[in-house]
Amino acid sequence: MIPKWTTEELQRKLEQGEKINLIDVREQEEWEEGHIAEARHIPLSQLAERYEECKSGEEPIVLICRSGNRSGKACDFLHELGYPVVNVEGGMLAWQGPVTRGAN
């Protein structure tokens, strides 16, 4: 079973300075509308070609999308490849923390 975090758990961990390997799998337009500053952007549509970019140290790969559906699919894909993953329940719809707008 793939572990899940709430957006509150994710926000608390980020605020406490924990090193989180956070990847946003939404498409470019969604990313630009608002994303978590600590996240890296690898759209689900590109994940099969770019999955090796996901690994960063020993931390699990924490995946977020709009609602938790696409990040769940990304978790399934990466889990099958042997990567440790965590899905963020509720995604950006549930995120109450600060967001960064634009392409960066």
Rank of each mutant, 00 (worst) to 15 (best):
R12N: 14
N87T: 06
T100W: 06
T6N: 03
C65V: 00
K55Q: 15
T100E: 13
E52W: 13
E89S: 14
Q96K: 14
W95T: 01
T100F: 04
M1W: 11
Q11H: 12
S56W: 13
E30V: 08
V99M: 15
R50G: 02
L14A: 05
E49N: 10
G97N: 03
V62H: 02
P84W: 04
Y83R: 05
E58G: 13
L81W: 05
A39M: 03
W95K: 03
E27Y: 04
I20N: 01
P60R: 00
R66F: 06
E53I: 11
E32M: 09
K73Y: 15
L44P: 05
K4M: 14
T7C: 09
Q16C: 09
E15D: 12
K73T: 13
E29V: 14
L10V: 03
A39T: 01
M92A: 06
K55W: 13
L14N: 03
V86F: 01
L44E: 04
P43T: 10
P60N: 00
E15L: 12
S67P: 05
Q28V: 14
G97T: 05
G102Y: 11
I61W: 08
P84K: 01
K73N: 15
N21Q: 09
G91E: 04
W5K: 01
Q46A: 10
I42V: 12
L10T: 01
G57C: 09
P60V: 01
N104F: 12
E49K: 13
M1S: 14
L22Q: 04
E8N: 12
E49A: 14
Q11K: 13
V85R: 02
G57N: 11
K73E: 14
H41E: 11
W95S: 00
S67G: 06
T7P: 01
R50H: 08
C65Q: 03
L81D: 11
G34V: 07
A103Y: 07
H35L: 06
K13I: 09
K73S: 15
E33H: 10
I2H: 05
S45G: 10
C75F: 00
L10Q: 00
P84C: 00
L10D: 03
N104E: 15
A48D: 13
E8R: 10
E52C: 10
V88S: 07
A74V: 08
L44S: 04
E29H: 11
V85I: 03
D76S: 15
I61S: 10
I23S: 02
H41G: 11
H79F: 13
V62A: 02
G91W: 01
E8V: 05
L22W: 02
L22R: 03
R50V: 06
A39L: 06
I23K: 01
E8T: 08
P43A: 13
P43F: 08
P60F: 00
S56A: 15
Q16A: 15
G17A: 04
P3E: 12
E30S: 12
E59S: 09
A74R: 02
R101A: 12
G68F: 10
V88T: 08
I42P: 04
I20F: 03
A74G: 06
A94F: 01
I64Q: 02
I23H: 02
T6K: 01
K73D: 13
L22D: 04
R70H: 04
D76G: 14
W5S: 00
L93I: 11
I42H: 01
R70T: 05
R70A: 01
